[in-house]
């Protein structure tokens, strides 16, 4: 017990000095569990996050926009893979992670339980949802767990095009016909508040924040990140000539930040708890993809085993001939 405590002290001093923790280093069991939970939730979010956008790939309004959307969705699949790999370095298997998701035991970002109703949603999602994700991910590039930090660096490099392509869609619609502009405004109205919720509950209701900050897993609190996002995004809304759907929004000179209205946390907890508009649909789509891919996984493995056996046999022949 005494030894455990001194190990924990050493670990704390180590992360306090901004050192990175690598997979084989000693770490408190709770740190390992927290990292597995956070990284796997993040991975699931990337994977489930492909679904609302995949909804529009076949209906993209031009070949250009279809290519861009395909590339973006493919990136998100890659992000899921980088993150699952990072989680696996902590001693959990990919299968367990996927089982947890499909069985509904794992969480993913609640934003992906909202429907994408129009093409303008591809704009709002790229701009706001990826934008909010980027704010969080830029912070996580400096997280204390090495493999997670490295995955974040790679992801952040790829993300910036996601936000820009979304904003471009919004610019085109906002500068288009009155109907197109109304579509853009409608998408903004529906995605604004859920995007602010992406940063998680307010600091005074976020029990894990203090420990995560102490271990340098997080560098900023939910409320700090949310405020930064609002401050950065409001001018972008103004540039589009659209309205933020918040009558309380106003610049606070004294604080040097925008004040904004109360967030409906009841809605957030409902969606997190499985009662969002698309929770069941998303998991069902994941389950179907998993089941439909089963024969491919099995066939690939059978093929690999057959070839390995054949090459082992031919090596045996060569050895006995010699």
């Amino acid at each position: 017990m005494g030894e455990e405590i001194s190990l924990e002290h050493r670990f704390q001093a180590y992360v306090d000095a901004d050192n990175k923790v690598e997979p084989k280093d000693w770490m408190p069991e709770k740190y390992r569990k927290t990292m597995i939970r956070q990284i796997s939730q993040h991975a699931h979010s990337e994977v489930v996050g492909m679904l609302p956008e995949a909804n529009w790939i076949t209906r993209a309004p031009s070949l250009r926009s279809k290519l861009i959307l395909l590339a973006k969705v493919q990136d998100e699949g890659g992000h899921g893979l980088y993150l699952y790999s990072a989680a696996e370095t902590l001693g959990i298997s990919r299968e367990e992670l996927l089982d947890d998701l499909l069985a509904g035991r794992a969480k993913y970002s609640s934003i992906f339980n909202y429907p994408t109703l129009s093409w303008a949603d591809m704009g709002a999602v790229g701009w706001l949802v990826d934008g909010a994700a980027i704010a969080n991910q830029v912070m996580l590039c400096r997280t204390s767990y090495g493999p997670y930090a490295r995955a974040m660096v790679r992801i952040c490099k790829e993300e910036s095009f996601h936000q820009r392509q979304g904003y471009e869609i919004m610019m085109h619609l906002a500068a288009g016909t009155p109907d197109q502009k109304a579509m853009a405004q409608d998408a903004l109205n529906r995605w604004w508040w859920p995007s602010l919720m992406m940063f998680g509950p307010p600091d005074d209701q976020s029990p894990n924040t203090a420990q995560s900050m102490a271990w340098r897993i997080k560098r900023k609190t939910n409320d700090e990140l949310r405020q930064e996002f609002v401050d950065k995004t409001v001018p972008q809304v103004e540039f589009l000539g659209l309205q933020v759907p918040d009558s309380d929004l106003k610049w606070n000179e004294a604080r040097g930040h925008y004040d904004f209205g109360p967030i409906d946390w009841e809605e957030f907890f409902q969606v997190v708890g499985g009662n969002g508009p698309c929770n069941k649909e998303r998991l069902a789509a994941r389950q179907k993809a998993h089941d439909d891919g089963m024969w491919v996984r099995e066939a690939a493995l059978a093929h690999a085993k057959k070839r390995a056996a054949a090459s082992a046999a031919s090596n045996d022949l060569k050895t006995s001939a010699a």
């Binding site: 493919q74 890659g78 893979l81 980088y82 790999s85 990919r94 790829e158 690939a300 493995l301 390995a308």
Partner: peptide, 23 residues
């Protein structure tokens, strides 16, 4: 660059191309 799951070396190479060299 990172890691991935694949049934054999050939598939691992192809997946690595898709996942780690998209740009």
């Amino acid at each position: 660059s990172g890691s991935l799951h694949a049934p054999d070396a050939e598939t691992a190479l192809k997946s690595a191309r898709d996942v780690y060299t998209r740009r």
